[in-house]
Amino acid sequence: MPDVKTLSLVGGVLALLCAATTIGWRLKHQRDIGINPAVVEAFNLRIRAWWLMCTVLAAAFLLGNASFIATVVLFGLISFWALREFITLTPTRLGDHRALSWVFFIFTPAQYILVGMGTGSYGLFSVLIPVYAFLFIPARVALAGDYKRFLERTAKIQAGLMVCVYCLSYAPALLSLSIPNYEGQSPRLLFFFVLVVQLADVLQYAWVNCWAGA
């Protein structure tokens, strides 16, 4: 049974989301306040995305015993989507194809499987990408024989893997962290982390749209 702290956290986030939704709804239905409708539309889309994110996260947290695995799988999927977006925008060449297959189908799942195995595999999971994948990618690209912009291409693939998979995989890894005197409270730590990131996004958006133009 969730304790008071968790409930108040969840309640707080729900209240914030409801407030934001109400504001967005009112802005949409007041035509004559001099705010660009496109901005309001973008704001409402963002709120919808936050609802979705919170629902999915909450569902993953509340699954009980399976919640650790569910959260790891969820972040694994987020990594996959993020990496897909990143590589799409990266000007890779045909010679990178096999290396990219390895990145998507071997390294990304392997990293999350190691995270899912808990702290016991920390030794491998902390070096799999920064050491082994980083050596493997240039080797595989070199084997493909396309030397044009070689360093630039491999560096970009490495950067994508680093940011979208390696760094992100530390978020669900928080759950397997055992801090003295705070045992069993790791989900709240992850929740706090996600909340801070989300708030940063909200504030950044609000500041840019309210004051940057003035």
Partner: peptide
Amino acid sequence: GEFLPVPLL
């Protein structure tokens, strides 16, 4: 000539 797709947008 490739067999395995890379998931991109």
